[in-house]
């Protein structure tokens, strides 16, 4: 149990990378990049977890209760935003690739070689 969350994060990262490298459709590859990024959320929040503690939001909690690490949550929040924006930008590029190349299969994109 003490290693499972970290190993799951590693597994999600590697599966995501495998998905991008073997993808035959750029939209699918962007989805796999989003999966790869979700591994960083799992690792960050697993690092910050404290057994028997609760969320560090004191609107409905006594001030001295044991709480989980708020810093990793701030980092994961920033990461979610960055992930959403990178996905949006890459999808915009995929739309234009489909228009200009007539295909979204990486194998058929032959413009830049040598």
């Amino acid at each position: 149990m003490s290693l499972l969350p970290y190993l799951i994060a590693g597994w999600v990262f590697l599966v995501g990378v495998h998905g991008i490298a073997t993808s035959r459709n750029l939209i699918h590859a962007v989805g796999c990049l989003a999966v790869t990024q979700s591994s960083t959320y799992v690792l960050l929040l697993a690092v910050g977890y404290r057994k028997g503690a609760t969320a560090p939001v004191f609107s409905d909690l006594p001030v001295d209760a044991p709480v989980v690490d708020p810093v990793v949550q701030a980092l994961a929040l920033t990461d979610v935003v960055v992930g959403a924006t990178v996905t949006a930008l890459l999808l915009a590029l995929v739309v234009q690739t489909a228009k200009r190349h007539g295909t979204v299969d990486p194998d058929e994109l032959s413009e830049l070689k040598g």
């Binding site: 929040l45 697993a46 969320a55 949550q73 999808l91």
Partner: peptide, 29 residues
């Protein structure tokens, strides 16, 4: 894992906005 803020952010982004963008891209392609 006691991180409701991050859960809310993931919900907000992952439930409607990202699928809408992906499906609009699929429709265009």
């Amino acid at each position: 894992l006691q991180a409701p803020d991050v859960g809310l952010a993931q919900l907000a982004v992952g439930s409607a906005v990202t699928p809408l963008m992906i499906l609009l891209t699929v429709r265009k392609v």
